[in-house]
Simulated scan of single mutants.
Amino acid sequence: MRFVCRRLLLFAGALVGLSLLVFALLRILPGDVAAVVAGTNATAEQLASLRSQMGLDKSYAAQYGDWIVGLLHGDLGTSVVSGKAVAAQVSSHASVTFPLIVFSLLIALAIGLPLGCAAVLTRNARLRGVFHVIAIVAGAVPALWGGLLLILLFSKGSGLLGLLPSQGFPDAGWSAPLSALAALMLPALATGITAGASIMRYTRAAVGDVASSQAVDMAMACGMTRRQAVLRVALRLATPQLVSVIGLTFAQMVTGVMVVENLFALPGLGSMLVTDVGNRDLVAVQSELFLLAAFFLFLGLLVDLLHRALDPRLKNATVGSGEVLA
């Protein structure tokens, strides 16, 4: 419990520091938000009234305090451009982004774990070389370029096979689940293949190290075949390392997915953030950036706790697993 409490306190402190950083960085950007919203023909009186309405006439400390109080009450503010609640906008766009991230991770796991274990189990030197080349080539292909190749091959209208849509998301959203899944298939493949190659390399390295240890020899001495010993013993012992890798890969996929969203014209968090930054929507951008960064911190905390729970050797450690990995 002391370890959990310590990690939660560090997490809370990191959130406070993160909020200060986001707030300060957005305030030093050039330009006047009120002038952007009011337009070029606005008078000085109109600008002053708008600044007062948006709270920009207050001190930075007061602005920060108002923002934090709103966050604690679940109020992310109101967009000065669209006039809509930022929380509602984030929720609407997250319904596209997070299913896409989960879908991409499932594809990455379906590729990385089996191929990584197969690379350890095979005794054929040529086949091991093939697995090695696959991991290097697939991992070196940027998700954006991979998405373009998938569009040329599988998209309806312009692709060679014309199987899947390549642009947009259905207006009905998840009320039409098959259409929604079809719209996410190509972007999920573009992100998942690259992440799967990374997971494959880590799986091969982690399971391969355990496969040459005494634990696997003991399992084989007890009557298991090498395949059974690797899949039942080595893979289980390598699970704590793989959980850390998968957690970090999941966090990295968030940024990768945001790039891919623009390629496939998906109304996700990436397109929303780019639009709000371009519009100088300060209220929306600071809340969106804070939520995304807080999500990264939460993933790190979750991986840290899972790693410690899965690896009994860390119970008496004086540092967290994230510090051990660093």
Score class of each variant (00 low, 15 high):
79 S>H: 10
93 H>V: 09
126 R>K: 15
138 A>K: 00
152 L>H: 08
83 G>A: 09
72 L>R: 06
102 V>N: 05
77 G>F: 15
114 P>Y: 07
102 V>R: 04
117 C>D: 09
124 N>T: 04
74 G>R: 13
76 L>R: 13
136 I>M: 13
68 I>K: 11
120 V>D: 00
119 A>Q: 03
71 L>Q: 07
118 A>H: 04
132 H>M: 08
112 G>W: 12
76 L>T: 06
72 L>F: 14
125 A>I: 09
130 V>F: 13
103 F>M: 11
70 G>W: 11
89 Q>G: 09
91 S>Y: 14
97 T>I: 01
127 L>K: 05
138 A>F: 13
103 F>R: 11
73 H>K: 13
82 S>H: 06
138 A>M: 12
131 F>K: 04
69 V>R: 15
72 L>G: 02
97 T>L: 03
96 V>P: 01
121 L>P: 02
90 V>A: 14
111 I>K: 01
136 I>E: 05
158 S>H: 09
152 L>C: 08
127 L>M: 08
66 D>I: 02
138 A>E: 04
131 F>C: 00
126 R>V: 07
152 L>D: 06
104 S>L: 07
90 V>H: 05
150 L>H: 06
140 A>F: 11
135 A>M: 06
100 L>R: 03
92 S>R: 15
87 A>H: 06
158 S>K: 13
111 I>C: 04
109 L>M: 07
136 I>F: 13
112 G>R: 11
74 G>A: 09
88 A>C: 06
152 L>G: 10
112 G>Y: 14
106 L>S: 08
132 H>L: 15
94 A>C: 01
99 P>F: 15
73 H>S: 02
103 F>Q: 08
132 H>A: 14
73 H>V: 06
70 G>S: 07
159 G>Q: 05
117 C>V: 14
110 A>F: 14
144 L>I: 10
98 F>T: 03
140 A>Q: 10
94 A>L: 15
83 G>S: 03
118 A>Q: 04
88 A>V: 08
136 I>Y: 11
91 S>R: 14
98 F>C: 04
148 L>A: 13
94 A>P: 00
114 P>D: 05
64 Y>W: 15
95 S>A: 14
96 V>N: 00
128 R>L: 07
155 S>I: 12
100 L>D: 07
158 S>P: 06
93 H>I: 08
118 A>F: 15
72 L>K: 13
93 H>G: 02
80 V>R: 15
119 A>V: 05
99 P>Q: 02
134 I>A: 09
109 L>Y: 09
94 A>Y: 01
158 S>C: 08
142 P>F: 15
122 T>A: 07
130 V>S: 05
116 G>Y: 08
